[in-house]
Design a protein around this nucleic acid. Structure first.
Length: 553
RNA sequence: GCGCCAGUAGCUCAGUUGGAUAGAGCGGGAGCCUUCUAAGCUCCAGGUCGGGGGUUCGAUUCCCUCCUGGCGCGCCA
């Protein structure tokens, strides 16, 4: 099938180049880099092979290029023209008709276009958000939710079987502070002065929980039963966080409770196993793990002198369960403020000596988010008190825009979320720009009263798609499978966001310059095929980011 | 002091794993609606890619060093 072959035009060209290099007498490994030139005037594909061979062959790059071209079977590689340019690049141009015929693949595969089986259906666990149930989700959790969900979608696209997991730290001292804070509010309602304890929580929601506790526990209006207060508060806040996630459109497959590690004996098992493996020691009344054996800069306490555990030990026990549950690949999405746990958790897993690989789990760390509004940093939320919540943002700018803004930057960059820009979006927001491209393409079919399902590649005169804007758009659409694969490999959804922006731009340019409806039949048919293809790719890419693809706006 | 991340246009950030004349959005300036959505398009201005060395045909990209900012360096999570 010609479409198949041309979609892999780079691979075909590469093979021809290798063959040609052999013909020139090159004996060592030949690995030509084939890439799309930045400037379309430089052709559709380009290679640097002549330059890399300059040294071993002791010839000028330009001469080598000439010989390579002569030795290649260009027609077999689908190349219409090969030219030498710059310091020794070889530029290949593919005939418009051949290029366009590759769109057949997009029409055939539709929502599957871009999917692959690279992951072979193997299980991967993606853990993200994992907020303590001590308050509403803040902007950092929002970035993490957007990232984790998009990474999960990317991996699904790449053929992995993904489990989204949320880990609740419901066992530590923070939860106790929460209970005490609610208790303080209960006593305030009963007439005492409000006294939030040291390290307690101050948001308005604490008072709301206290009020609800009071109505449901009429016999304990002062919160004397701290266990009841704790259970009630955690339950209430988990429900609250679920609503936040629901508003954001993020769903989890597994909610894993830290407390279950204690009740199931996993914590004790892990301590015993680490001791048995010989990597622990006692000092100052505490039990330590010799993490310095595994690259940490100091040893870490597992069990405090008061007999309770640090967060680190359950963390290790938790990741053991991931391994034991069959996840031989696990990805943790976390804020960079937790990066010190990376070495520690991995060290703990190594110290168990149960065959867990050194790089397990993989970490995707993201930098901090600051929210700007009216030219000033926005810190105060009505709900949470000292920080801005995910819900605040969604209420301000909408779910799609929040997702896009969190995903448009790579995680390594600190992110400034400009609420004004995101909201003045009816004008200039990139997410609307992209969605508009999809809506416009949909509009062609709607206005023309054409059922897109009836548009096929049968009988298309591909050479009709020869306008420069069309060639550029087609090439970009055909790049989607590689782009999504690269983004999945690197766990970098922002590549998809950038790709979408670029694709939308080419769509708008093409749409503005060339008409579809009312053109001669063969041109209209060809352009309908292109419009349908572009709509499919944009919808697929938006789906990877969890953003809607509206048919009209 | 040590570790991680960053430093690219006035602002916010990309840069396809080392390629050709470094890009986008916003902001600034000038134009474009009798035709499928002007929520759009076209053009202009704007750069010591933090500084300095090195590696090579070629560096924003890799190495070294210094400067600046963020985060972390707990028997908190």
């Amino acid at each position: 099938m010609p479409g198949e072959k041309l979609l892999n035009a780079d691979a075909v060209i590469r093979a021809e180049l290798v063959r040609a290099a052999r013909a020139l007498g090159v004996t060592e490994n030949v690995e030509p880099v084939i890439e799309r030139p930045r400037d379309p005037a430089h052709g559709d594909w380009a290679t640097n092979l002549a330059m890399t061979l300059a040294r071993p062959l002791k010839k000028k790059p330009a001469d080598i290029a000439k010989e390579l071209i002569a030795a290649m079977n260009l027609a077999d590689a689908g190349v219409a023209e090969a030219t030498i340019a710059g310091p020794g690049f070889i530029n290949f141009r593919i005939a418009s008709g051949s290029l366009a015929s590759s769109l057949t693949k997009i029409l055939d595969e539709r929502e599957s276009f871009g999917r692959s089986n690279a992951g072979k259906g193997e299980p991967v666990n993606v853990e993200f958000v994992s907020a303590n149930p001590t308050g509403p989700l803040h902007v950092g959790h929002g970035r993490q939710a957007a990232l984790g969900d998009a990474i999960s979608r990317l991996l699904t696209h790449a053929g992995w079987t993904v489990t989204r997991e949320f880990y609740y730290n419901d066992g530590g001292g923070q939860i106790n502070n929460l209970a005490l804070s609610v208790q303080a509010h209960l006593r305030a309602i009963a007439g005492e002065p409000l006294a939030i304890p040291e390290g307690g929580y101050h948001g308005e929601y604490i008072g709301e929980i206290a009020a609800r506790y009071r109505t449901e526990h009429a016999a304990d209006t002062r919160g004397g039963n701290l266990d009841d207060v704790r259970t009630f508060a955690v339950k209430a806040l988990r429900a609250e966080q679920d609503l936040d996630l629901q508003a954001f459109g993020v769903q989890f497959d597994v909610y894993f409770l830290e407390s279950s590690l204690y009740t199931d004996g996993k914590v004790d098992e892990t301590v015993a196993a680490l001791g048995k493996a010989g990597h622990t020691f006692e000092q100052d009344g505490a039990l330590w793990l010799r993490t310095t054996d595994y690259g940490d800069d100091k040893d870490r306490v597992m069990r405090k002198s008061d007999g309770t555990f640090t967060y680190f030990l359950p963390d290790v026990a938790y990741h053991v369960t991931k391994w034991q549950r069959g996840f031989h690949r696990a990805i943790d999405v976390q804020g960079a403020d937790h990066h010190s746990t990376v070495t520690r958790v991995r060290a703990g897993l190594q110290a168990l000596e149960i065959g867990i690989p050194v790089g397990y789990p993989e970490y995707v760390l993201h930098q901090m988010v600051t929210v700007m509004k009216g030219g000033e940093e926005m810190k105060i939320s009505k709900r949470a008190g000292s920080y801005v919540t995910v819900r605040d943002l969604i209420d301000e700018v909408g779910r799609d825009a929040v997702r896009y803004f969190f995903l448009m930057r790579k995680g390594d960059s600190q992110l400034v979320f400009d609420v004004d820009l995101a909201r003045s979006q009816s004008e200039e927001n990139p997410v609307y720009y992209i969605q508009m491209a999809h809506a416009r393409l949909s509009g062609i079919f709607r206005v023309g009263e054409i059922d897109a399902g009836t548009i096929t590649a049968d009988g298309v005169r591909w050479e009709c798609l020869g306008e420069p804007e069309e060639r550029e758009l087609i090439k970009l659409l055909l790049d989607w499978p590689k782009l999504v694969q690269g983004a999945a490999d690197a766990l970098e959804p922002h590549r998809v966001a950038n790709y979408l922006l670029e694709t939308a731009r080419l769509v708008h340019t093409w749409y503005h310059k060339h008409h579809v409806l009312g053109e001669p039949d063969d041109i209209m048919h060809a352009r309908l095929v292109l419009a349908k293809s572009a709509r499919i790719v944009i919808a697929n890419a938006l789906a990877v980011l969890g953003i809607s693809a509206p048919e009209r706006m």
